[in-house]
């Protein structure tokens, strides 16, 4: 993944994770943008592993994406207790005695 893709995806994920969908004054977004600007000319930090900055960006991206996916799956499948009579009836196509014909 190129650095630009990572940056765009990171900002996208941050926007999705934010409760109001706005990252205008988000600390993380500001920090990430500053880091990307800093390593714009070279993302190979001196005396460190190659592409360390991009690797860290990718890892944070994985963190945000996986957490979001997990939450979505959890919301979809987590049990919400027993179904009500109405829900069960709807499930099998029956009608309650009180429902109109």
């Amino acid at each position: 993944m190129s650095a630009t893709t990572v940056l765009r995806s990171l900002l996208h994920e941050l926007r999705q994770a934010a409760p109001n969908g706005c990252i205008k004054d988000s600390l993380a977004a500001r920090y990430i943008l500053a880091q990307f600007k800093k390593f714009k000319t070279t993302d190979q930090q001196l005396c460190k592993a190659r592409n360390e900055a991009v690797f860290l960006g990718q890892t944070y991206l994985t963190y945000l994406t996986s957490t979001r996916n997990y939450n979505e799956l959890h919301k979809e499948y987590h049990g919400r207790g027993e179904r009500s009579v109405k829900e069960t009836a709807d499930l099998v196509g029956f009608k309650l005695p009180t429902d109109p014909k």
């Binding site: 360390e52 860290l56 890892t59 944070y60 994985t62 963190y63 996986s66 957490t67 996916n69 997990y70 799956l73 959890h74 499948y77």
Partner: peptide, 18 residues
């Protein structure tokens, strides 16, 4: 579900170490 959870956990650990 388990895949996403493991990824999130591992990413957190890697970020923390780095």
């Amino acid at each position: 579900l388990s895949q996403q959870e493991l990824q999130a956990r591992l990413a957190a650990a890697v970020l923390y170490v780095h």
